[in-house]
Amino acid sequence: MRKMEQYDDYITARRLELPVPGGSSTITLRVNEVEHQHAAPATETLAQYLRNRPGLTGLKTGCGEGECGACTVLIDDQPVNSCLVLAFQVEGRRITTIEGLESADGTLSALQQAFIDHGAVQCGYCIPGMVIASEGLLRRNPTPDDTEIRRALAGNICRCTGFLNIIKAVKSVASANARAVPE
């Protein structure tokens, strides 16, 4: 297996290769409570910016047209397809990616752990988008029912078709939330 450092080297190399055409302006984004400043063209999407400039490669670019949901991030707690947002449009807003869910010591969030516990991860490509879309739902509605979970994840496609365990994972967090806060 490749070590994480090798991936970091790879990402750094990719970052240096990126063309920064004249006329690019500096785009400042606040991601997971950290500020990033990079020169980027006006037409650069949020997905391209996040993956290639600060190297936040958790989000995936699947279809590039808002059908698959693999690039989902939160903007001010709301799930959006980062492939359909231009980076300059979200300057000054609060962006959350999958990298922002674990705590500082690397402990996974309850939602991330639930995905593991329920065997919700197969090939894994859709999972960052699935987790972030679920996180967006749970921040809005900590105790969603099955229908609400299914509707919230309708914009996320799992090519392995592992939807049932994904829904079970989210449901388990919703149930835990319901127990924690009795109505």
């Binding site: 808002g66 949901g69 903007i75 397809n81 879309a133 509707r151 309708a154 914009g155």
Partner: peptide, 9 residues
């Protein structure tokens, strides 16, 4: 229309 992600934008 679309999905949650699309409707938010």
């Amino acid at each position: 229309v679309g999905s949650v992600q699309i409707r938010n934008r």
